[in-house]
Design a protein around this nucleic acid. Structure first.
Lengths: 229, 229
DNA sequence: TCCTCCGATTTTGTTAACAATATATCGGCC
DNA sequence: GGCCGATATATTGTTAACAAAATCGGAGGA
């Protein structure tokens, strides 16, 4: 199962899509920026065909919006978009936790506790720090999605939800910062999964993501946020 | 919010995608069939560009598989694919039910009971009949997704999960046939939503979909099913 | 008889030019 | 001076030709 095979269609298109996604998620292309096809084609030294394909991919990933006969722009996420995103995330990750618990073997719990050990180090070195932002936290959630044995969930998370979450964080730098609390919640989730208790794992995961949402929502209040109709 | 605006990109592409999806879900294009670009371009009297775009859309919807440098085929869904699909469906629709219950106003419950009244008529006219298959049952689930107030869930259901479910049913004609039971379950779900009891609504919805899965899985045992690695 | 290698053919990936649509600018009019 | 309409520009949608890759068939040899 090639990780990149699905819906790629071409080498150049893939290259452009990857590079664009990287730039958008790094914040170098601000939300709302126009993404003209000719400009992109020149920048990446390809034709407009692959650029078109790449833009469609990114539109599916949810980080650009395409208006027919008008063009593509970096997506602007409003408060309602963010809320909907976190609701879907809660549902899918809670399901992932439930399924992972159902398939818990000895190796699974070991993997999780080991991962959490690494995270504990990182958190203690950055006392009130990032944790949640980098690939650190994400790894925990992705590992659980893997353990769930459901490739569809893993695909949705990595290809749509997480890119959109990263896009959300472009506007609000250094969000969260609730590293300690998150780590503790991760521990309890891992424990429930290791015990094979799917119901508890799902419940804790749902709470964990809800807490993450509430932390973000607090920061989402002040800035000017308006989603166009 | 234009219903078709997202990720369409062009009129011809949209037309081809719609027509192809219709043919695939109607079973006229069997799973595994090759979808050569030139052949499709000639059939629809357009160039290969829109055809390519349409195939990418259908690949995102999950009803065709694209192998780079090789081509597109109508997707063949194995047992594991079906299981993963129903797991995701359970998670998303349970969440939709929960959210719908949380936003229950007077009008919502009325809409649901009215819809169920129609369904009851249909079921009684087709005693042991279809119900689940047509747009009949689907409407119930889609209405709940609408009531959830989460456009993302609605989008996933209509654009990815339900097309894939239809594709599953291509192989196994006249599946389910548990119309009476399903209708009863729908009634109880609607009741929970009308009462504003999100937890119960989510639980009942999850059970409902699990029952649907088990009915399908029973029919999935006999036929030769093998998903390529 | 089976395997391997090579070439021909078909199919996808890419490109550049053409057509249609939307956006912006400028002149006229109220 | 402000608003409306027509023209001009720029951008997307589409097409057809070109290039590269993969598949298929057959010839040659073990």
């Amino acid at each position: 199962m090639l990780t990149k095979s699905e819906e790629s269609r071409g080498v150049a298109a893939e290259r452009v899509a990857l590079a664009l996604q990287e730039e958008i998620l790094a914040g170098r292309l601000a939300p709302g920026s126009r993404l003209g096809e000719v400009a992109l084609a020149e920048r990446f030294e390809v034709s407009r065909g692959p650029v078109r394909s790449a833009l469609n991919q990114l539109a599916d990933a949810g980080i650009v919006t395409i208006v027919p006969n008008s063009g593509a722009r970096v997506r602007e996420m409003g408060r309602e978009d963010a809320r909907a995103l976190y609701e879907v995330r809660a549902a899918l990750e809670a399901e992932a936790a439930r399924l992972a618990a159902g398939q818990a073997d000895a190796r699974s719990g070991e993997t999780l506790t080991q991962l959490l050990g690494q995270h504990a180090q990182e958190v203690s070195s950055h006392p009130q720090g990032a944790y949640l932002q980098g690939p650190g936290d994400r790894d925990f959630h992705i590992v659980i999605a893997r353990l769930s044995g459901n490739p569809l969930i893993l695909r949705y998370l990595t290809r749509e939800l997480y890119p959109q979450l990263s896009l959300l964080r472009v506007k609000h730098r250094n969000v969260t910062g609730r590293g300690q609390a998150a780590l503790l919640e991760h521990r309890r989730i891992a424990e429930a999964i290791a015990c094979g208790d799917g119901e508890v794992a799902a419940l804790l995961m749902r709470r964990h993501i809800r807490a993450s949402w509430e932390a973000l929502e607090a920061q989402l209040a002040a800035p000017s946020e308006e989603s166009e109709a």
